[in-house]
């Protein structure tokens, strides 16, 4: 039996909770650059991304006890962010059927290769035809449901399962959107880089 008074036990518990909260906040803040990077590509402007990230952290700090320690905190934060983005009136995901058909996976390479004088150039020379600005612009033009999958998996380096949880869609849907999103991105890159 412990001879510590109930008051002392409570005080210790409160101190422990406070310590957990501080640790949670520090860990979440350490991820802010990565959260912002993903958020910035999910929305259309810097202002929108900043507001969204700020609201995400405000909500996360209020609801921190709902986070299960040891699970993926970055995914948890981005799940909040995605929900807030939907609450802000982001349009419902359009049916993939209404999307323009993307080109095949070799399309971009073939288009870029045509701009080079030599036959069968090295892939290194082909990729040099692209600039960072063109990539960022082309990505912004990918319809958001496809873009989100590309941003989370290819830029955020999330697993399919984490991306599925963040977007609240089945894993199979993440995979098909990723596949099509990359193709749409490449078609858009081809159009910009070759223009």
């Amino acid at each position: 039996m412990s001879d510590i008074s109930p008051d002392a036990t409570d005080a210790r518990r409160i101190a422990e909770v406070e310590r957990d909260r501080v640790r949670f906040e520090e860990e979440a803040l350490e991820l802010s650059d990565q959260v912002y990077r993903v958020a910035r590509r999910m929305v259309n402007s810097r202002e929108e991304a900043e507001d969204l990230v700020q609201d995400t952290y405000a909500r996360a700090f209020r609801a921190w006890q709902q986070y299960q320690s040891g699970t993926n905190l970055r995914a948890w934060l981005l799940r909040i962010l995605t929900n807030l983005n939907i609450d802000r009136g982001r349009k419902a995901q359009r049916s993939p059927d209404s999307q323009p058909l993307e080109e095949g996976d070799y399309f971009l390479y073939n288009k870029l290769e045509e701009t080079l004088p030599d036959e069968n150039p090295d892939e290194e020379r082909v990729i040099e035809r692209l600039s960072q600005n063109v990539v960022v612009e082309a990505l912004a033009e990918v319809p958001h449901d496809f873009r989100d999958a590309v941003v989370l998996v290819d830029i955020g380096e999330f697993s399919y399962a984490d991306a599925a949880q963040i977007l609240d869609i089945p894993v199979g849907t993440v995979m098909s959107r990723l596949h099509r999103g990359r193709r749409i991105l490449k078609a858009s890159l081809a159009e910009k880089a070759v223009a």
């Binding site: 912002y36 990077r37 990230v53 070799y106 390479y109 892939e123 290194e124 990729i127 990539v135 290819d154």
Partner: peptide
């Protein structure tokens, strides 16, 4: 060559995005 290009492209996209508009100090 097209497979190698695809691998490099994925890396290039990630790097391009990371280098563009990082989070502001104000935020």
């Amino acid at each position: 060559r097209r497979f190698k290009f695809e691998e490099k492209l994925r890396h290039f996209v990630a790097v391009a995005v990371a280098a563009t508009e990082p989070m502001s100090d104000a935020l």
